[in-house]
Amino acid sequence: MIRVDGSGKSNALIQVRGLDKTYRRGGEEIQVLQRLNLDVDKGDFVGFMGPSGSGKTTLLNLLGGLDVPTHGSITVASDEITNMSSNKLTQWRARHVGFIFQMYNLIPVLTAFQNVELPLLLTKLSKSERRKHVETALSVVGLAERMNHYPRQLSGGQEQRVAIARAIVADPTFLLCDEPTGDLDRKSADEIMELIHRLVKEYGKTVLMVTHDPVVAKRADLTLHLEKGLLVESGQLGVTAGGVA
């Protein structure tokens, strides 16, 4: 169950309570997130929508442990990440988060294989074990034959599939996708969404995804809208804006 009123079960995979994020630019304060609540269970597929500048990327960065909130807490699989030191947080990211970005963000000087292998370099796996994992991840995304290609030798859709393979190769607790189809044409976008959908349905992955595209958003179990620093379910804008203080 995905909840935004702070009333989720205490055993939800991801629990966000009273999340505030304020940026300071010059003397001016920008409140991006205000007392935001969210509960996501294992295997959920959540979509986030909202106007540009509403704080979607900010929210994903906080959930992924890339940034720290001004107030509030984020607990993932009973680890409260908002209390962790930055070194701890780095290790936590390696184990629990798979990132998928709009611009794929592959390392151009590494082959598809080497890009996918990167997260595994942080584990104790042997070379042959790493190879097995990389090959598996690449076949899940349907690019096993392209593993020796460099990013520039791949199409945008293929690059994003390599990026997805990189995100899932270490079997993270959840995936964070920031406009994963934002830079792709309709057909490639559909293929990518088909793939992410399969990851959720076949492999039981938990996915949190930001998108501007309503067609893409439809793939999610539930789409939440970010408005005035709060998440609201579609169709009931402003209704659940409350929650536990």
């Binding site: 290790q91 990211r93 390392i107």
Partner: peptide
């Protein structure tokens, strides 16, 4: 920097 940031996001330490 973008690539180095991705490495850090993935879990490579500073």
């Amino acid at each position: 920097v973008g690539e180095l940031a991705v490495l850090k996001a993935i879990g490579f330490s500073g």
